[in-house]
Structure formats: C-alpha cells, structure tokens
C-alpha cells in the first residue's frame, strides 16, 4: 500500500496541519516509508483475538458527584493567547 498525494492532503486537513505543496511530496515519501514498516501486521492471522485497548484488564473506578474545583479562571487565562471579558477569543466561528 502507498498513500497518494491527495490522501496525504486529506489526512493533513483532518489533523488541521498545514502542509504546503512543496512539503507534500517529502511528507508522502516519509509516510510511505513508515507504512512500509507497519505493513507487517497485515499478514498476521488475528481471527478470534480480542483487541487489547488497555494495558491492564481492570474496570473503571468512579468519582462521587461532588463539586471540588474552585474558580481558577485568572490563573488559567494568564497563559491564554487572547482573552476578553473572561472569554477565549478565536477567529470568528462561522456556522
């Protein structure tokens, strides 16, 4: 398998990473190198094998429904790129 240039651009768009047309071919070549390595898994017969999504086979611990977090807006927004009136500002969201 190898990724086409348009597939590279499609995943870059999905991942919200700008890839210039000049970079695209180099990225494509590197990704195809990596997928060459990953190919190996395709040949393995895994029928009947349960996927292992977690390193340990345990179940979830739950938290009691209590409010424990105080307002720390000032500290959090001290590191924000742009804020006004307590809001994070972003380029206009177009609906």
């Amino acid at each position: 398998m190898s990724l086409t240039l348009s597939e590279v651009m499609r995943i870059a768009a999905l991942a919200r990473i700008a890839v210039t047309p000049q970079e695209a071919e180099a990225v494509q070549a590197q990704l195809n190198g990596i997928f060459g390595l990953l190919e190996k898994i395709n040949a393995v017969d895994t029928s009947g094998v349960e996927p292992m999504y977690h390193a340990r086979d345990v179940t979830l611990r739950l938290r009691d429904d209590e409010v424990t977090e105080p307002d720390r807006r000032a500290a959090f927004q001290a590191v924000a790129p742009q804020v006004e009136a307590g809001l994070y500002l972003v380029p206009k969201v177009i609906e």
């Binding site: 742009q82 006004e84 307590g86 809001l87 500002l89 206009k92 969201v93």
Partner: peptide, 15 residues
Amino acid sequence: KSLHEDFHGMSGIDL
C-alpha cells in the same frame, strides 16, 4: 459555547 457577538470580528468561547 461560542458567542458570536462581535469581539473585534472574533468569537468568544465560554467553556
């Protein structure tokens, strides 16, 4: 929530 009233042409985000 995204608040679309005008902040110098930007949107405000309230989480």
